[in-house]
């Protein structure tokens, strides 16, 4: 079993005001002067306070149950649902990953909300989400690059709570990694602490393809965050 740990800087993430406005629902090309100024201000704060970490572990001991669409990793059975199973089943190995943007962003968000600046709190929250997703993207790029040297490819990344995979299965993923891995813990309701964290799996094998996004696989056609690419 191999694994790798990463620490990134906010400037590595390629996040700009435009990305954040899209994440808040504004269509391409539409902006709002007052919101723009607050996003710029909060983004500078986030740059200073975020703690971007990512880790992955590669598991070679995996097997597939086509009839029930289940993936067994070591002795843990993952019920990922049919969408993810279809994308993963050609994998020879699985990378289990966790990433976080740290705790300070959510603290700032809650403080702002408590002090009646709900808009600023909301923008902290949106930037925190964008930061952790971009961290996962960078980690995935690193994994792809690493696998390329062995002529292997990777799939998209899939997380519990998405594409029909029950969020409660997050407990199974965390059962496969050491306690406090990447400084993330899990509540009984499968909420990660810090909240601005993601976990999931990435398939590894010679016949896989990483698509621009996972949205094309997902059934939630009306999702606010659905990407068209």
């Amino acid at each position: 079993m191999t694994g790798k740990t990463f620490q990134f800087e906010f400037r590595d993430l390629n996040i700009n005001v435009d990305n954040i406005e899209r994440a808040m629902g504004y269509p391409e090309g539409e902006s709002h002067e007052a919101i723009y100024d607050i996003v710029v201000k909060v983004m500078k704060q986030v740059e200073a306070i975020c703690d971007l970490k990512a880790e992955y572990r590669i598991f070679n001991d995996i097997s597939y149950d086509d009839a029930n669409r289940r993936i067994t990793v070591q002795r843990t059975v993952l019920n990922t649902g049919k969408i993810i199973y279809r994308q993963i089943k050609k994998s020879d190995a699985l990378a289990l990953f966790v990433c976080t943007a740290g705790r300070e962003i959510e603290e700032r968000s809650r403080t702002a909300m408590r002090e009646s600046d709900v808009l600023e709190g909301y923008i902290y929250d949106i930037i925190g989400s964008a930061a952790v997703e971009a961290t996962a993207e960078l980690m995935q790029d690193e994994l792809e690059h690493f696998m390329k040297s062995s002529d292997l490819k990777i799939s998209n990344r899939f997380s519990p709570g998405y594409c029909g995979w029950d969020v409660a299965e997050q407990h199974k993923l965390f059962g496969l990694i050491p306690d406090n891995y990447c400084a993330i813990s899990l509540t009984s309701s499968a909420l990660m602490d810090p909240v601005k964290s993601v976990s999931g799996i990435i398939g590894i094998g010679p016949d896989l393809k990483r698509q621009a996004s996972t949205c094309r696989f997902c059934d939630m056609k009306d999702c606010l965050y659905r990407r068209q690419d």
Binding site: A34, I35, D117, L119
Partner: peptide
């Protein structure tokens, strides 16, 4: 009707408060 988005709604709510 998606004429405005969450941030503008929050600004309005703050003005109302």
């Amino acid at each position: 009707k998606k004429i405005i988005y969450v941030p503008q709604m929050l600004m309005a709510a703050k003005a109302m408060s």
